[in-house]
């Protein structure tokens, strides 16, 4: 694929991550502030709260999207940093292959987790 197309996806993925990770960070890290203003649902990483979230379709779907977008954005960014060294063609091909395998592997594993816990997780 053309480099400019890959880069556009990097920008687009960044925009998606901006919203989804923004939400994730508010839920996970501003939980005590949400509680203090009466909008929280308990400590965000308490076991019951985690499994309650995992059982909701909204979180399952947005986690899979966030997983894919953040993996693409992060790995493409890392590839850019490495390619700035103006490497030999062989190295570039090797890095591309490793990143594709690692990215797809993590995406499949993470999606499996999100879907499995959504279907089977009991509180």
């Amino acid at each position: 694929m053309r480099e400019s197309t890959l880069w556009r996806w990097h920008m687009l993925a960044g925009a998606v991550v901006f919203f989804l990770l923004g939400l994730h960070m508010v839920i996970m890290h501003l939980d005590d502030i949400l509680l203090a203003i009466g909008a929280g649902h308990g400590k965000a990483i308490d076991t019951t709260v985690v499994f309650e979230r995992s059982k909701q379709a909204f979180f399952m779907v947005t986690y899979v999207i966030l997983l894919g977008a953040a993996l693409y954005h992060g790995l493409y960014g890392m590839r850019n940093i490495l390619f700035e060294l103006t490497l030999k063609k062989g190295w570039e091909t090797l890095i591309n292959r490793i990143f594709i395998v690692v990215g797809l592997g993590l995406f499949i594993y993470g999606t499996y987790v999100a879907v499995f816990v959504f279907l089977n997780g009991e509180v």
Partner: peptide, 26 residues
Amino acid sequence: GIGILVYFILHIFVTGSRLGGPEKWH
């Protein structure tokens, strides 16, 4: 960016411990 990426990759495995149920997560 690099810091978040490293955290994120470990995060995928840590949150994967939900596969083992609430006790494993805990």
